[in-house]
């Protein structure tokens, strides 16, 4: 049996190392090897965005990344968004706007929104919808998610001012 590969990476600011098989996806390793189960699996083929994480500054779907590719890379998962027990304004806004029902899509939406607002703090509705087109939600009908993103953007802008 061929062996496992040793990988070192930074996850949510912490140095992390793990062993994986080259065929394992980064999603599988995050959840089943490292135990970061906040990242969800929906489709496992890049379509639903439930698994969205930030990898070296860009959002990606780790179901379409091999875990061995993470060597030397920096990642942020949903577990890295809140500040200790204080929710991130985006998380707070999703709660207040009731932007979730079953919640399986929520970690992906929140991570994708974080990356959007880092790059574009004041996006238009059109920009939000296009940025989030790779994230599917079967419950909310999206409008509440869009409103939550807009509110979070406003809150974060005000906090900076």
């Amino acid at each position: 049996m061929p062996g496992k590969t040793y990988v070192q990476a930074t996850i949510n600011g912490e140095h992390t190392d793990f062993l994986c098989e080259p065929r394992q996806s980064l999603l599988e390793v995050l959840r089943d090897v490292i135990g970061l189960t906040g990242t969800k699996e929906g489709c496992n083929d890049g379509n639903c965005g439930a698994c969205t994480i930030i990898l070296d500054g860009r959002i990606v779907t780790p179901c379409l990344v091999l875990a061995v590719e993470a060597e030397g890379k920096e990642m942020t998962t949903i577990e890295g968004i809140a500040n200790g027990s204080t929710l991130h304004p985006i998380q707070q806004s999703f709660l207040e706007n009731a932007a979730l029902q079953c919640g399986i899509c929520t970690p992906g939406f929140i991570v994708a929104t974080k990356a959007l607002l880092d790059e574009n703090p004041n996006p238009t509705e059109y920009e939000i919808r296009f940025w989030l087109a790779n994230n599917l939600c079967r419950c909310t009908g999206y409008d509440k998610i869009i409103r939550a993103v807009q509110d979070a953007a406003t809150t974060m802008q005000e906090a900076k001012a």
């Binding site: 965005g49 990898l55 860009r58 990606v60 779907t61 990344v65 994708a112 087109a133």
Partner: peptide, 9 residues
């Protein structure tokens, strides 16, 4: 091609 996540790769 795809959405934001796909375009990241």
């Amino acid at each position: 091609i795809g959405g934001t996540q796909i375009q990241g790769r």
